[in-house]
Structure formats: C-alpha cells, structure tokens
Design a protein around this nucleic acid. Structure first.
Length: 644
RNA sequence: GCCCAGAUAGCUCAGCCGGCAGAGCACAUCCUUGGUAAGGAUGAGGUCACGGGUUCGAAUCCCGUUCUGGGCUCCA
C-alpha cells in the first residue's frame, strides 16, 4: 500500500535549522535518510556505516577538510564539559553538516546558561593552543584506560569492535586515542594540529538523543554547535539561520492569516479564509491537470471497518497509528490512506482491458495518529489530504503511464518555478513478489526516467517492499531539500491482496498493475514548503490576495472599486480595495507586509485618465497603466500560472 | 512516545526578590484627505494555558495535565 502522508523523511538536517521534514504522502517507511546519496555510477564519498554500529560511532564524520576542525571542536567541548561536570560520561561527538555535536550523560539537565560557561571554558582551551596528539595503544590497554576513566559508553564501543573482530577471526587492531591538553578521547581522527586552529564557534542547542539511536537505551544530552574557518562564515551561517526562521511557515501562517493550530485538535490545521484560498487554488490546479489527463475523481468513506485494514495488512502493523472508533461493538478506523477503498470501486464491476488505464483520483481526508513529539506545523500533521490517485493499467501500459506522470510532475512543479529531482528506489532485500517482475518493472521505470530529461538519482534497495518507487524532491530558495511525493508501480499489494482483475482480449483474467501517485503529496505539507520557499510571497496565480487597489483619498474609492471589478473580470479572483482612512503610505506598508503581488494606486491623475500607478511587491513601479491593459496583463499572468 | 525548554491582550514581548497585570503593533471612535513601507488624539481589550498545592496573599514558588518549540526515535 502506498503510504499516505505525514510521513516525513528527512534527507539532511543542517544543525540548528529546522530541516526538511517533508515526505510525501506516498512516502514509504524505508525512506530513512542517508545523508550521502550517491548518484548512480558515482563512487560514494564514503560508505555510511550502519546506524548505531560501533563503526558508525567511531566515524567522526571528518570527510571534508573543515570536518576535522568541527570534530576537533567537539573534542574541546567535551573537555570543557568534563571539566565542569567531573564524572560526565561521553557518548560520541562527530562532525556534522555546519558543525558538530557531542552526547553526554550528566548528573543534571543542561540549561542555556551552561552553554555559556562551556563556551567560556572552550575558549580557554583554544587560547592554550594544545596540540592534538594521536596515540596508539594495544587494544587491551586502550580498553583498560576507558574502564579506568569510567567511560562505560566508550568501553561498550570497544567491546563491540572486539566481538566483531572475534566473529570475523581477525586480530584486534590497536586502539587509537587523540589527546589535547588534559583531554583524551577514543577516536580515529583526523584532527587539526592544535586547539588554536579552531575557528569562530558557537554552541547552539541542547537536545535529548538516545544512546546509539535506540529508544530502549539511555537518553543522553546532546549539545549542538557550529564552527567555521572565519568569523564571516560563522556570521553568514547565523544569518541564514535567522533568515530561515523568518521564512518559517508557522510564523508566516500567522502573519499572513493563513491558518492556525489549536490544542483542541493537535496536528490538524484550522484553515483561515486566505489559507483556504491558497489550498483550494492549488488543489483546483491539480484537478484541472487531472481532468486534462483523463483522471476521474472519486470519494470514499473516511470511516472504515476493521476488516478492510485486516485485509490490507495495516491492522496488524499500524493499528497503533490509526484512530479507532467503536461502533456497536465493532471497530472502525478513520482512514490513514485511500488506496484500499479505491479497489472497491475498481472491483464494483467486471473490468475489460478496454477500461484501462483507469485513473481514479481522490482528495480524501486522512488521519494518522502520529506521536505527539513529532508534530510540527504543517509539515508533520495528523490530519491531511493528498492529491492522491490510483491508476490501474495493463502491464504493457506501464511505460506510457510513467511517461505521462513525468509530464505531470514537470508541468505542476513549473507552476512554482521548481525543478524537481527524482530518486529511484529499487527492490529492497525483503521484497514481495517475483524478482523477475521487479526487474522488468524497474527497467521500464528507469527507461522512462531517462527519457523524461528530469534529474534523477538511484537509491538501490530503497523501494517499498511491494513496489519500486520514484520519490520527488525539491530544493527550495534556501537550498534545503524537501521530499514531497512518490510514484509507486505496485504489481503485488493492491492487485493481489485485493484480487483485482481485468479480462484481456483473449477473454482470460489478468492482474492489472496499480500505480500509486501523488504529485504534491499532502496539501498541508506542500503549502508549508511553498510558504517557506517563497517566504510567503506566492506567485500571482495562487496568492491569497492577488492585488490591492489603494485609493489615495476618499474621492478615489469608487474608481478603486471599479478597477477591482475590472481586474476580477480580467481573471483575478482575490482583489481587495483598501478604503480605510490610513494614509496611502501606510496602506502600501500593510499590503507589502501581506506580500500582495500588486498594489494599484489611484489618485486624481489616474482616475482622470482611467489608469493606475502599479507597484509590485519588489518595490518596482510603473506609472499610468490603463485599466484595460492591467486587467488583461494580470489576468494572463494568473491564468498561465507564471511564477514571476 | 522520550529528553530539554516554553505558554502573560489578536500579534511581538516585559513583568521572574510572591503584594492593585504592562508596552508597542493591531482593533474601535474622532480629527486628518494624503503621491509609493508607519499622520494625530482618545478608548476598549487579560480566568496570566488548565487543574491542584504552599502562603495572609501566586502571573511569579511546587506538583500534575494539555499544547507549542528544539532534538531523539518513529513515519503504512
């Protein structure tokens, strides 16, 4: 079954910024992010060790020159923490994108004030310019050192390595430490020459993190920090962080009056009129595309009996994530996905090969009981709608259908000026179905990816357990990558589990292929991403307020209303007239704050000539544009869904 | 779900040593009728998230709950 929605896989998470969380409604479980995604036929920079493995724990993440400094800073931070909290136990402290972290087990929770004293102590160590010294000792001696120091987590890592070596029958290599000043840490390196080489840094946050990423293990305290070669680099990083905060869709949602959240329904947006305009405009654009592409929209019940989920397999695996409702001693669930029910419509009559492709779209309301701690604005919700569709095709129609879908992706993302990147996930180790069928399907998909001309990369083994998939990612204006949706070519789950058939030319029963597709993914999440991408300044065609007409004085108000009507006749839907008694300058300021694409100013001169002074939200101006021209121009810009 | 932090007017926040609940913006009324990002005056607006406790007295201290945020884990 395709996954439905809120799922958020992240590809990378810059320290201290809210990382991309978006995952398409169709995102699958195994979307777990590898930070490094190797393009096909390209040598990966390094092979990421398995999460939580001893190898990973020893991997300082120093794969680029600056990472050695970041990792070295982590050591200096650990020195400071150990100094301030004698007896602290060390977890691991690798370099990460933009910085580093170190995990500690401490006698008490850290506060922001602690970060300041840790920073101060770090500066002392840096000023002392201690050299980093590599030390190699026989394994047993190294282990004894960590045991003596009471560093239980380090001992555990060493024991794991020893166990692994024993299993492989290889001798245990010597243990390497890095020392600087009074501090020693089990570490493979590399490091900078001395602490004095460490550049401008800043500690950013304290967070909880499970030891080895295992929720059954102790929760350690993780301190995140950032460090750069120059002050200018650090300043720029901090500035970008501030910029990202300003673009936060949760903040802009309030500022632009788009939506709000309330504790009476956590994880579900309350859409305000302007936000709902945006929502509907996006949905209607997709509906319009789907109409052209031969989709037929359906609607199935949101509340569904337990037995459907038993059949789909979700009852067994995802019952905890479903909202259950007890009706006369029978369990029903609010649907977490649309696909199983769409099969009922498919099966409602005997299907002929002539009926295929059958493209059924559905904007169903989905609910998933996401853990409270993971909810986050619009990007991770419990209640959402996807631009979902299930396309039933004959096997020989797969290629043509994928080609069509590539076109849909290209077109719809162009409405936002976005260039999607695709990720092709192939057969995972434990997959359902015949490997030969997988290979055949993958070959078709790969060929279509090539033909599409869209950028794509391959993640071997990253397909869903029942279907190879194509994930869609976008890179926003700040260079952050977000996952939005997935296309899956399912020849097993929906067709087999729900026993779908069609009658071919020869009159025999055949299995159709079910292609799960969503292009936006969840509308909620997509709007969150777009809001951050555009920093709230939406393109004219989907802006919740497309133009504000600003009469300079009361006597221009009637003309302003006339112009607003003309613009609506020309194709704009949301035009406002600001006839408040604010001064014109203030009206401009307000419209600017609302990121309205066009401000149309009318004074004596304009009313006389039936023109307007046009001010765009970028500040540019154009004087004396005739109303008729304006209506035609803006109407065309909106109709053609132009971005700029 | 787990760790940490937070919740005061519609918004942004101050108040945190326990002693009459504050500012700016927004809002209302009035004055002002203007030329490309803030004209002026007056006014209204709060169960200090919720529930308990300590105290003569709680926005303030303690406990619990809910929600939000940063992470971790999860994400059909």
């Amino acid at each position: 079954m395709k996954a439905g929605g809120t799922a958020g896989g992240r590809t990378s998470r810059p320290v201290g910024t809210r990382g991309p969380v978006i995952l398409g409604s169709e995102a699958m479980a195994d979307d777990q992010a590898g930070a490094a995604v190797a393009a096909e036929d390209e040598e990966p920079e390094f092979e990421a060790p398995e999460r939580g493995s001893a190898d990973e724990l020893l991997d300082a993440g120093a794969h680029a020159p600056i990472d050695a400094m970041r990792h070295s800073t982590a050591h200096v931070m650990a020195e400071a923490v150990l100094d301030l909290f004698p007896g602290a136990r060390l977890g691991i402290g690798p370099a990460i994108e933009n910085g580093f972290y170190y995990d500690f087990e401490l006698p008490r929770p850290l506060t922001p004030a602690d970060l300041e004293s840790i920073e101060a102590r770090m500066r002392e160590s840096i000023a002392a310019d201690h050299p980093f010294v590599r030390r190699e000792v026989p394994f047993e001696e190294g282990r004894a050192l960590e045991v003596g120091a009471g560093q239980a987590f380090k001992v555990e890592i060493l024991d794991d390595l020893a166990a692994k070596a024993a299993e492989a029958g290889t001798p245990m290599p010597p243990t390497t430490f890095y020392e600087h000043g009074p501090f020693r840490d089990l570490c493979k390196g590399p490091h900078v020459e001395s602490t004095g080489r460490i550049g401008p840094f800043k500690l950013l946050a304290v967070a909880g993190a499970y030891w080895r990423g295992d929720e059954k293990r102790p929760m350690l305290q993780r301190i995140y920090g950032t460090v750069w070669e120059t002050q200018a680099d650090l300043d720029q990083f901090l500035w970008r962080r501030e910029e990202a905060k300003k673009r936060d869709h949760r903040k802009l949602g309030v500022q632009l009056d788009l939506f709000s959240f309330h504790d009476v329904s956590p994880g579900a947006a309350f859409w305000h009129p302007k936000g709902w305009r945006l929502y509907q405009t996006l949905r209607d654009a997709m509906r319009e595309l789907q109409d052209r592409r031969g989709y037929q929209e359906i609607y199935t019940p949101p509340l569904v009996h337990q037995k459907l989920w038993e059949r789909s397999g979700h009852w067994e695996h995802y019952r905890d994530g479903m909202y259950l409702v007890d009706v006369e001693d029978q369990w029903f669930s609010l649907k977490p996905m649309n696909c199983p029910e769409s099969s009922f419509i498919y099966r409602s009559r005997l299907r002929s090969y002539r009926d295929l492709p059958l493209r059924l779209s559905e904007y169903g309301v989905l609910h998933r009981n996401e853990l409270s701690g993971v909810l986050s604005g619009l990007t991770r919700v419990r209640h959402f709608v996807t631009d979902d569709a299930h396309i039933f095709v004959r096997p020989d129609q797969i290629a043509a259908e994928i080609e069509g879908l590539m076109g849909e992706i290209r077109e719809s993302y162009s409405w936002f000026g976005l260039e999607p990147t695709l990720t092709f996930g192939t057969r995972p180790d434990k997959a359902l179905g015949d490997p030969a069928i997988w290979e055949e399907t993958e070959a078709i998909m790969r060929a279509e990816l090539e033909r599409s001309g869209l950028q794509y990369r391959v993640k071997p083994g990253d397909g869903a357990f029942y279907a190879p998939k194509i994930d869609i990612q976008i890179t926003d204006a700040l260079g952050r990558e977000w996952q939005t949706a997935t296309i899956q070519v399912d020849r097993v789950m929906l067709p087999e589990r729900f026993d779908l058939t069609y009658i071919d030319e020869a009159g025999t029963q055949q299995r159709p292929v079910a292609i799960h597709r969503a292009i936006y993914g969840s509308l909620e999440r997509f709007i969150g991403v777009l809001t951050e991408h555009f920093a709230g300044a939406f393109p004219l065609w989907c802006a919740p307020v497309q133009a504000v007409v600003i009469p300079i004085a009361d006597r221009h108000a009637d003309a302003a209303r006339e112009l607003a009507d003309a613009l609506k006749a020309g194709g704009l839907r949301f035009v406002e007239v600001d006839d408040s008694d604010n001064r014109m300058q203030n009206k401009i300021r307000l419209a600017q704050g609302q990121k309205v694409p066009y401000m149309l100013i009318l004074g004596d001169r304009e009313v006389e000539a039936r023109t307007a002074s046009v001010r765009r939200r970028d500040g540019s101006q154009e004087q004396g544009v005739a109303w008729a021209d304006l209506a035609a121009r803006l109407g065309a810009e909106a109709r053609e869904r132009r971005v700029a």
